[in-house]
Lab assay of single mutants.
Amino acid sequence: MDVFMKGLSKAKEGVVAAAEKTKQGVAEAAGKTKEGVLYVGSKTKEGVVHGVATVAEKTKEQVTNVGGAVVTGVTAVAQKTVEGAGSIAAATGFVKKDQLGKNEEGAPQEGILEDMPVDPDNEAYEMPSEEGYQDYEPEA
């Protein structure tokens, strides 16, 4: 019985440690998101679009440190934060509304985080759909 109880105690310690790591990862992701939003706020009209992409990228980098179902929630929060940063930029006159959601080359930025393969159960990952990809044929 002692062996059984000791095993359960060790398992509990492992769960607590994993929860603490997840909590730490979420806190880091939130900190990076805040950094990115402050970065966007300090940019001029020309830099705002690039700044919004930076927020998304920093958040995406930190999301990889967070495991399990938390990833889905962090990704949703990050996307809403990026959308909010863009709205703030438009409201303050840093950028025109028609410039939001495009990178410096004018290509749409939507789907940055949505296409990231995420499995809350950590069982399997699927690649994003290939609808947006084109076949590449090298020139002879």
Rank of each mutant, 00 (worst) to 15 (best):
K97Y: 03
K34D: 00
I88P: 02
E131N: 09
A76I: 09
V40K: 01
K45T: 05
V55L: 15
E123G: 12
E28C: 11
G93A: 09
A89L: 10
L113M: 12
G93I: 13
T22G: 03
Y136G: 06
K80R: 07
N65G: 08
E126Q: 04
G47L: 13
E123T: 14
T81R: 03
K32N: 02
A89H: 04
A19C: 05
L8G: 00
H50A: 13
V49N: 02
G67S: 12
D98Q: 06
A29T: 05
P128C: 08
E46P: 02
G25C: 12
G41Q: 05
E28L: 10
G36Y: 14
Q24R: 14
T59C: 14
G86A: 14
H50N: 08
T54R: 10
T64W: 03
N65R: 09
H50W: 09
K60D: 01
G68P: 03
E28Q: 14
E57N: 10
V49R: 08
T44E: 00
V16F: 13
V15P: 00
K97Q: 04
G101V: 12
G36D: 01
A124I: 04
S9C: 11
E61H: 06
A124W: 13
S87I: 13
V26I: 12
E28R: 05
G132E: 14
V49F: 06
A124E: 07
M5A: 03
A27D: 01
N103Y: 07
E126I: 12
V66T: 03
A91W: 13
T64V: 10
V37A: 09
A90I: 02
F94L: 09
V74Y: 11
T22H: 01
E130Y: 06
L113I: 07
E83L: 07
A19F: 15
A91F: 14
G7E: 02
G67Q: 08
A140W: 05
K6D: 03
T44D: 00
M5V: 13
V15R: 00
A29G: 02
E126K: 12
G132N: 13
L38T: 02
A27S: 08
E83S: 03
E123S: 08
V15F: 02
Q99C: 10
A76Q: 10
E114V: 09
A30L: 14
P120F: 09
E13W: 09
K96N: 15
I112R: 09
A107F: 06
V55F: 07
P128Q: 09
E110H: 04
F94W: 11
V40Y: 15
T72D: 12
N103M: 10
T92I: 10
G132S: 04
P117T: 13
A107H: 05
D98E: 06
M116K: 09
G14I: 14
M127N: 09
V52M: 05
G14T: 15
A56Y: 12
V26P: 00
L100P: 13
A29K: 05
S42E: 09
A19L: 15
K34F: 14
D2L: 11
D135V: 07
S129N: 05
M116L: 07
K6F: 04
L38H: 03
T75E: 04
V16K: 14
A107Q: 04
G101R: 15
L38I: 03
K80S: 03
V70I: 15
P108S: 05
G106V: 05
V3Q: 02
G86S: 14
T22L: 14
D2K: 04
G111V: 01
E35H: 06
Q134R: 09
E46N: 12
T54A: 05
A56Q: 03
P138E: 04
P120W: 05
Y125R: 09
Q99I: 11
Y125Q: 09
G86T: 13
K21N: 03
V40I: 13
G47A: 11
G86H: 12
K58G: 01
Q24E: 13
A90F: 13
Y136L: 10
E46H: 08
V77F: 06
Y125V: 11
V82P: 02
N103K: 06
G47Y: 15
E131K: 10
A69E: 03
K97R: 12
A53I: 15
Q134T: 03
E35T: 09
G51Y: 11
M1R: 00
K60T: 05
E35V: 08
V66N: 01
A17C: 11
K97E: 10
Q79I: 09
V74T: 01
E57G: 06
E83D: 08
N122P: 06
E105N: 10
P117A: 08
L38M: 13
V49M: 14
S129E: 11
V71W: 12
V16W: 11
L113Y: 11
S9V: 09
T75Q: 12
E131L: 07
A69K: 11
V66I: 15
Q24L: 07
G67Y: 06
T33H: 01
G68D: 13
A91L: 09
G111N: 05
P108H: 14
G84R: 12
P128W: 09
G47S: 07
M5S: 03
K21P: 00
K23M: 14
D119H: 15
L38V: 08
Y133C: 10
A56N: 02
K96L: 07
G106Y: 04
Y136H: 11
E131Y: 07
E139C: 02
A56R: 11
V82C: 06
K60W: 03
F94T: 04
A140H: 08
V77A: 14
A89Q: 04
E57M: 08
G36V: 15
K6W: 08
G68V: 06
T22S: 05
K23E: 00
G51E: 01
N122F: 03
Y133R: 02
K43D: 00
A19P: 00
D135M: 11
V52N: 01
D2G: 01
Q134D: 06
P138S: 05
N122W: 06
G106K: 07
K23H: 05
V55G: 01
K102W: 15
E105G: 12
V77Q: 02
A91S: 05
G36N: 12
T75P: 01
E110K: 06
A107W: 06
G73M: 12
T54S: 15
P108M: 09
D115C: 05
Q24T: 14
E35A: 08
A78Y: 15
V49L: 15
H50F: 15
V118M: 07
G14K: 12
S129I: 06
A90P: 02
S129D: 09
A107E: 11
D135S: 07
E130C: 08
E137M: 06
K23V: 09
E139S: 13
V66C: 07
T59Y: 13
V16Y: 13
D119L: 14
I88S: 02
T54D: 01
A53P: 01
G67T: 10
G36F: 10
G67V: 11
E83N: 13
E114L: 07
K80Y: 09
Q79R: 13
Q79G: 05
K10M: 15
Q79V: 08
P138T: 09
E130D: 10
D115W: 03
E126V: 11
S87D: 07
K58P: 00
T81E: 03
Y136N: 05
E110N: 08
S42W: 11
E46T: 04
K6Q: 01
G47I: 11
K21E: 00
P128Y: 04
V74Q: 01
I88E: 02
G67K: 06
M1E: 00
S129G: 10
K102D: 04
Y39V: 03
